[in-house]
Amino acid sequence: MDRIALGVEYLGSNYCGWQYQHHDLSVQQVLEQALARVADRPIRVHCAGRTDAGVHATGQVVHFETPVERPDRAWTLGVNANLPDDVAVRWARPVDASFHARFSAVARHYRYLILRRPVRSALWHQRALWTHWPLSVAPMREAAAALVGRHDFTSFRALACQAKSPVRTLEYLDLIERGALIELNVGADGFLHHMVRNLVGVLLAIGRGERPVSWAAELLALRDRARGGVTAPAHGLYLVRVDYPEGFGLPGDPDLPSDPKALTSDY
């Protein structure tokens, strides 16, 4: 059996999430169907991170096993020919049998996009969170700094989160202004269910002036999700990169493309 790793990107707007569901269409389902056509037999894939409904990815990584031999082009161009337009395989690599898309990962990186302008955007619909309220990024950055490091993130995970431990190491939490677009970039050794969206919800409240900068650190210390902020919508979130030990030889994924010249702020 050969083990193959794939880099996958998708817009999550039309899917119930990554994971296969009986009641609705998932990204996993359409990818497995396309792979099965190329392999001429059923294929089951394992992913680095199960994204929720509406969440996008530019750097999802999956692996699967197959007894059939195909050139790398078949696992990219051939599979893409059988995928819908909003899902695409970016690269394919044979990997050692010890590789696992989820358990071999050493870090994951997400980006949350916020469009800050008085009127909504047609082009960024379902691709960024639109807010017509002015946001002050400086206090958001100050609050974010208190969250970096190894902490108990109970206040920032979903009540239904099944992780055994709420402790994670946040390597960075940065905000970049690109005209009307605000990029929130975050990387960690792992994330809890809804953790990024809950972090964004808290920082948005601080940016709007509804809460003080100290609120983020206070929530961290409380370790109580019921006292936390609103969960930000899924459609602004992107899984942009998954890191693995260099020995596996997987390609790095570029950052999400954006054109700051095309965006202007009226604030």
Rank of each mutant, 00 (worst) to 15 (best):
H235E: 05
D72R: 15
S13I: 03
G149L: 14
G252R: 11
G59P: 00
S121T: 11
T131V: 11
R108K: 10
L25I: 14
A158G: 12
Y110R: 03
H193I: 05
R227W: 12
A138K: 15
L203C: 06
A138I: 13
E65D: 13
H194S: 02
A74R: 10
G228A: 14
L219Q: 10
T131L: 10
R102P: 00
I43Q: 05
P257A: 14
R223D: 11
P94R: 13
P71A: 06
F64Y: 08
A105L: 07
R241A: 12
R111S: 03
G78M: 12
V106S: 07
Y112C: 04
R37V: 11
E171Y: 12
L147K: 03
S13R: 11
D86S: 06
P166K: 14
D52K: 01
A36T: 15
L237H: 03
G12L: 01
S258D: 13
Y20A: 04
S165I: 13
L250P: 02
V167T: 10
D152P: 06
V242H: 04
R41S: 15
R241Y: 01
L31T: 09
A217H: 12
G229P: 02
R127M: 06
V87R: 04
P245M: 07
E183M: 06
R127Q: 11
V87A: 01
Y10I: 05
L220Y: 08
Y238G: 01
P84R: 10
G190P: 00
R116L: 11
M140S: 08
A217P: 03
D96G: 13
N14P: 02
R227C: 14
L239Q: 03
A145H: 14
A226H: 12
V45M: 07
L147M: 12
E69T: 15
E142L: 12
P139V: 10
H22M: 13
V95P: 00
A163H: 07
V186E: 01
G209L: 05
P94W: 11
G252T: 10
R141M: 04
L129H: 13
P166D: 09
T58F: 01
W91S: 01
R3H: 04
L204F: 13
T66F: 03
A36C: 07
A160H: 12
E32W: 03
A53W: 06
A144C: 09
A216P: 00
H132F: 14
R50I: 05
P42E: 10
Y15L: 01
L77N: 15
A160Y: 10
M140E: 02
R111A: 11
R141E: 15
V186K: 02
L219S: 15
W215P: 00
